[in-house]
Design a protein around this nucleic acid. Structure first.
Lengths: 249, 249
DNA sequence: ATCCTAGTCGTCTCCCTGACGATAAAAAGC
DNA sequence: GCTTTTTATCGTCAGGGAGACGACTAGGAT
């Protein structure tokens, strides 16, 4: 930190990009926006923007998240924030010298997990936004044969992998659920994120037996047809001990 | 990414800071350097420096690591690099607006795990460097009652926690060992990083039974006194299935 | 020769997990 | 109304991993 004259630092721009994930119709989906200007005009991209001069990184990410989804983020002492039903954490930083053709841009990617939202509201500016299944975005050639802008496919892949591994040993899967949910709904979250089928009986035994994971909310509901299911809220536990195990293929 | 005029971006400096960990004398130690100029002149700090204009983040971290320790880093396709016996990965990014009193600095912290090195060579410039047990650096008031410079205590704490959790489910603990090592030496690594005592018999059964973790190197050695121990190298496995379990207090 | 130290193999028990049968309670179809 | 379908929930059982710990081995130290 002493090798350079601080007043002669090289010119960097710092942005935040958001991997916002949700589960819709039994599929893991990411929020993407259509770029209205070059470079990559017309391409789908992750939402994001420049960090403002007097704004922290988590603060910038929370602001962008609110602009794009309307979710309010409530910053916590650590690096993670919890919005109204949403979770926000730093993912990784991407700074390849040529990742943006305009200039040197270092992007601090964040990962947000949100429950199924009514509609992807188009945000403050006029860009169109949509939820796209990550399988399509990350498939060969990307969505509609067109890959994501910049290095956003790699960022999205890292975010998806982070989500997939983090619901193993933390209670974060509840961030995909509304405030009150059933064991079956939580199971469908795991199945959608991991892309596997889980045994309903073993899953029920596991989640109800893990202390602090779920607390009964008191009612029952019939949202899916079939026998009414008990309603739960997320418990106070953040780490799951023992973890949920992702079955191997 | 379209809200700002890219040519009018706010002025940011981007640095890399390094959490370099090793195990020395049954204690987890971090590399710290003494600052020779303000701010925090005379304080201990994590090694680091500015990212150069045409240099990637991992590249900058590898360069700093080589300057401070002499370890060569060999960049891999992913975000992680493996040096000659050392491991390097991105940790997290710290960008609080006031974290550096001189200017707005965003620091991309990296975590390096190295085997016990002969001596902390003072690096290219004249700053003094030393290995300090993390318990002293993170204890109340920090080393000698003086805390680390900037927010480096928080960065170090995050790096230590990352190392502690990552040796649970990956074979990264071998990065603290020389090329050939015994099961006992590997066990002392786990004990030092976690700060616990492990049962030698169960540990031996576990690591030798995990496929791909260790491969016999063919010889035996008596480095610690007692019965000669078989020598192993790190196997090809990077993830441990099932993981090593950190005992709870 | 004896003790000490560290390494290695074995055993036993507990608990978690996966596989899967059985029952319960609602909606959907007839 | 009755049956079928769907989902939820409880139980049982076998296999595997992990903690606790005994026993044996092979060097150095005294």
């Amino acid at each position: 930190m002493s090798r350079y004259d601080p007043s002669a630092f090289p010119p960097f721009a710092v942005t935040v990009d958001l991997v916002v994930l949700t589960v819709r119709e039994h599929a893991l989906c990411a929020l993407v926006v259509r770029r209205g200007e070059p470079p990559f005009q017309g391409y789908w991209a992750l939402p994001g923007g420049f960090v403002r001069p007097d704004e922290g990184l988590a603060e910038a990410a929370a602001r962008e998240l609110a602009e794009e989804t309307g979710l309010r983020a409530h910053t916590t002492p650590g690096q993670n924030s919890v919005a109204a039903g949403a979770h926000l954490e730093q993912l990784a930083t991407y700074g390849h010298p040529q990742r943006d053709p305009r200039m040197r841009v270092v992007s601090v990617a964040h990962l947000a997990l949100a429950p199924d939202l009514p509609a992807p509201r188009p945000g403050g500016d006029a860009r169109s936004a949509r939820w796209a299944p990550v399988g399509e975005l990350l498939g060969p050639g990307g969505e509609e044969g067109v890959p994501l802008a910049f290095d956003h496919a790699a960022i999205l892949a890292d975010g998806v992998e982070r989500a997939r591994s983090k619901i193993e040993y933390s209670s974060l899967a509840t961030a995909f659920c509304p405030a009150e949910f059933t064991v079956g709904e939580l199971r469908r979250v795991y199945e959608s994120v991991w892309g596997v089928a889980l045994d309903p009986r073993n899953f029920h035994r596991k989640v109800t037996g893990t202390p602090g994971f779920l607390v009964p909310a008191g009612g029952t509901t019939t949202r899916q047809g079939g026998r009414p299911a008990q309603l739960f809220r997320a418990g106070g536990a953040t780490v799951l001990n023992p973890p949920m195990l992702r079955p191997e293929p």
